[in-house]
Amino acid sequence: MKVALLIVDMQIGCREETPAKRSFDLAVEYINEISQYFRSKSYPVVIIKDIEVGSPDTEAFDCVDNLIITDQDRVIHKQHCNAFWETELDAVLKAEGVDGVIVSGFAVEHCVLFTYNGARERGYQVYLLQNGVAGYDEEEIKRIQLLRPIINYQALEYFL
């Protein structure tokens, strides 16, 4: 199985609007660890940016400074909550031979969950990244993770 890491909406504007900033910052740290692991194994890392946060020439549109991004990463701009809807994401993943995705990022109650569902609808094996999702409400983050398959660093090391 070839797996890609999707990093959804970890943008400056998103961090500014959430009351759960600590959760956001902790998710960035965990995503950085996992993304480095994916890159070391030559698995795709896809940065997804929401154009509703701000136009591409604004600071709000940029990813937060502490998120590690490399030139190898693919960047997808989306205008809907589901990163697969009206974007090239599915084609990019298929071209890479990807059949599984790990979804991480912000906001677990909206864009992360909708992207998760979009991946399932397209036949991907899909998981949420434990500790790698952020949202508006800590309790809602926990509830969503209880109802979806999650995967952590140790399990990824074993399977990949």
Score class of each variant (00 low, 15 high):
S55Q: 11
E138P: 04
D57C: 04
L5V: 06
L156K: 05
R122K: 15
Q125L: 10
D9W: 02
F114V: 04
G123M: 07
L147T: 13
C111R: 03
S23D: 08
C63D: 01
L160A: 12
Q79A: 09
S40V: 12
R148K: 13
Q11S: 00
L6F: 07
N117L: 08
D137Y: 11
G97W: 02
D99A: 05
N131L: 10
R39C: 14
G118A: 11
E17H: 07
S55M: 11
L67H: 01
T115W: 12
D57N: 13
V45L: 01
H110A: 12
F84A: 13
G118P: 05
K142A: 14
A95D: 11
S40Q: 14
G54H: 06
L113D: 15
R15S: 00
K78W: 14
F106T: 02
E138Y: 09
D71N: 13
E121I: 09
V98G: 00
P149N: 13
Y43P: 00
K78P: 05
Y153V: 11
V75W: 10
Y158T: 15
M1G: 05
G54R: 04
K78I: 11
C14Q: 05
P56Q: 10
Y43A: 01
L26G: 03
D71K: 15
L113A: 15
P44G: 06
F84H: 10
L160C: 08
I150P: 04
V75E: 10
G97T: 05
A155F: 15
E17N: 12
L128Q: 09
E59H: 06
Y136V: 08
E109I: 14
G54P: 03
D137C: 09
W85P: 01
E140V: 15
V45F: 03
I144R: 12
N82Y: 07
T18F: 00
Y136P: 02
Y30T: 12
G105F: 04
Q36F: 07
I48K: 03
V101F: 09
I12Q: 05
I76V: 15
I69W: 03
E88M: 13
V103C: 04
I68H: 08
G13Q: 00
G135A: 06
E33T: 08
E29Y: 02
L128P: 09
V3F: 03
D90F: 15
G105S: 04
Y136L: 12
S42Y: 14
E29G: 03
R15E: 04
R148Y: 08
V28S: 00
